[in-house]
Nucleic acid binder design. Structure first.
Lengths: 221, 221
DNA sequence: ACGCTGATTTCGTGATCACAATTTTCCATG
DNA sequence: CATGGAAAATTGTGATCACGAAATCAGCGT
């Protein structure tokens, strides 16, 4: 594979993206966006083939993702997406309920109108995904709505931690959202946007917390 | 499934521990306990040799640890322990200040006297490490003091997240503790123990928060 | 003494392979 | 028709290798 020939003048702004990175990002997105159900089995050779690489980068990606809780390794090394117990789901939800209000609060001071408008647009796409009953698109836009806000918090470590929590919840969220097909958009997104416009810290924290906890508690029924 | 019959002479109680796991655990402990200064360079071949394995398990361990923020990969793939900016240190400290009071509070309901006694003993060892001005032993016993409490919270995901934060801070804590050799044990451990004995949730949360923030703020001078 | 350039060494990456263990398949037996 | 177990296919593990890129070093010139 004459890779250097095929990449004559690499656009300097973007990294060349190693094989491992492509596989990692691809798998990570599939998992976080709920494209895989809980308990879905994967193989290193299969992953490698679907990304056009050998086992080696596939294995590294799997190790990395399993370290983040996005994949489960059985005792014999078999790879599956995690099947979370109810206890674990509740714990992850409570972590979200702890981190997200904090991130929102930090972002509030730096949020300007352009940001809120952008979130509004994303929220529309989210509502559309609900109408289409498209779980993957719903999860994707929902996460993008939150991440757009949290990026303004300028707290990369905290956001990174939160993303690993989202990652762990990906397959479970898919299962829950496909099981009971919801027909109404998450109601608290409006409250979040209002609190942002008003610059009301307490209201924003509350809206974020209830959005997270209600969203998951509503599904555990 | 008569697997136990077919198994030759494996010690049943402990997993065989794959090469990758041994390397991962070994490196992780070195980093978390502050045995390596910030910016310390590592090589895959060197890691492999020091653990008696080939590059492959070494590489997987490094990938995993870098995913957790315990190691930094340069653009060319070079491996070093992270050199944290002051901003990053503050952010990680505020994450600790967010998670640790929550974990402590959850543990409080389940904490019995034997646990507090154990923490007392660990705290003595911690004070001894201060007198000996032994940074590694100080960090180790300090973390063990906290972890002993948080294990009772029965919140493995939250504790896991916290440990990755500790991991990221390992080399920096070593640098800080060796730079200014402190001569007095952390004063808030007493407050933590008192709050535990009194069953006072608010006091425990406060003591944990100040222990975390003061501990790091005291060193940034 | 200092800086630059070219050679050499070191290093990470990704592919491939042998091997052992597991899982699956399939057929014979009750 | 179910069931048990042997054979075959599949899978993860770890070692090794070639390759290109990066870092280190040597030697030269200024």
């Amino acid at each position: 594979m004459p890779k250097s020939v095929l990449r004559p003048t690499v656009p300097a702004e973007s990294a060349p993206l190693s094989a491992h990175d492509r596989v990692y990002r691809g798998l990570r997105q599939q998992i976080m966006h709920g494209e895989l159900p809980p308990g879905h089995a994967l193989t290193l050779r299969g992953i490698g083939k679907s990304f056009g690489v050998s086992m080696t980068p596939a294995r590294e990606s799997v190790r990395r993702l399993s370290a983040e809780g996005a994949l489960t390794l059985s005792a014999s090394g078999r790879v599956t997406t995690p099947e979370l117990s109810n206890e674990r789901i509740e714990e992850l939800a409570s972590i979200r309920a702890l981190l997200e209000p904090e991130l929102g609060s930090r972002a509030l001071r730096r949020a300007h109108l352009a940001l809120i408008d952008r979130m509004d647009i994303i929220n529309d796409a989210n509502a559309r995904a609900v109408n289409q009953q498209n779980p993957v698109e719903y999860i994707r836009t929902n996460l993008e709505f939150h991440r757009t806000l949290y990026l303004r918090a300028q707290s990369p470590a905290m956001l990174g931690l939160l993303e690993t929590v989202w990652l762990q919840l990906g397959p479970t969220m898919r299962a829950l959202y496909t099981r009971l097909r919801r027909t109404t958009a998450p109601p608290h997104h409006r409250l979040i946007l209002e609190a942002l416009r008003a610059g009301d810290d307490a209201a924003l924290r509350l809206a974020l917390r209830t959005d997270v906890t209600q969203g998951l508690r509503h599904l555990q029924a």
